[in-house]
Design a protein around this nucleic acid. Structure first.
Lengths: 160, 160
DNA sequence: GCCGTCCTACTCGGATACTCTATGTCCGAGTCCGCCGGG
DNA sequence: CCCGGCGGACTCGGACATAGAGTATCCGAGTAGGACGGC
């Protein structure tokens, strides 16, 4: 089980966007994080489709958060990038083979699928409990308030 | 994020093995579940390496559980197949770009990595709370005690 | 009749092709700003 | 001096190559059981 690499970029990008009221171009986000511009753009598109960020075209365009950072959860971002498909997908092998269970008795998911679904739910809950604002606050605390201030200053700098 | 298909097969196979004291051949397990024999064998090797099952060679060989089903957790099986690598791997992008944080200040994982690790931990706990015996009991309940009895009878049948 | 040895058939184990998703990249459609001309 | 129209350059968006991991398979090494011969 491996999570897409873009999830990390998307989360960092959201934290960065939460520090700016003005639109931030994908190029600048990529430059700030030292990652490929074109590929980050692809993931930002996914965030745009999920209506987590709003894209503005034109000369002073870029991305902004559509909602306050406190109301955007990590879960939303992860699902926007990675999709909402559960990690475990039951293929109903109990309905196959010489001892196949008839479909009528398979209305409820099988015990294994139920346990995996419960685990996934626990994962979801843990992610839904943390917002982008929480992440920003934690980063701020970790750096004694310098990191995000630097980001704000850098974002306010020349548009190159 | 997608979990390997073999996880499902491995879990079902473990439940099946818990119903037999005699070794069960990979061929029979595959036949019972209606899945490719050669590929299942590969995953059974992983379970063998993890010392969850014991492989016996020779004419009446096959696989058996090394421990009572109640002491084998779903987490062990999942990790044996899928590996122990966490789903989210922080690439430390905070140490890159124009505002790179110096490595000395990065002893603690970044806030995002901490949150993802907590979520993964919640997932692990949910899986560790369920044993193979629990799964067998749940399946037994679901089928009014017929499913596992059928399996035991089928396993006791001719070795073909 | 009993025991040791050999043989055979069967098992698992690792090395080997193939496919599909995730990665990385590019160019085109759409849009907003700034300039220019007219009133 | 103010306003409307136009041009241009910049933005995002989706379509297009590439690589790595997961999927599926095969054949060889090793082993346990059974048959055979000798004692």
């Amino acid at each position: 089980m491996k999570l897409s690499n873009g999830v990390e970029w998307a989360l960092h990008s959201c934290v960065t966007l939460s520090q700016s009221r003005a639109p931030v171009r994908a190029t600048r986000l990529a430059e700030l994080h030292g990652i490929p511009q074109a590929y980050l753009a692809k993931h930002l598109q996914a965030l745009s489709r999920a209506e987590i960020v709003h894209a503005t075209a034109g000369q002073v365009g870029g991305y902004t958060l559509t909602r306050p950072a406190a109301s955007v959860t990590m879960l939303e971002v992860v699902q926007a990038i990675d999709g909402t498909e559960p990690a475990y997908r039951c293929t109903e092998i109990r309905q196959r083979g010489p001892l196949a269970v008839p479909a009528e008795q398979c209305e409820r998911p099988c015990a294994i699928a139920r346990a995996m679904a419960a685990a996934q739910e626990a994962w979801y809950r843990a992610l839904a409990a943390v917002s982008i604002a929480d992440l920003a606050a934690a980063i701020d605390t970790d750096s004694d308030g310098t990191a995000l201030a630097d980001v704000r200053r850098w974002l306010a700098g020349s548009r190159h």
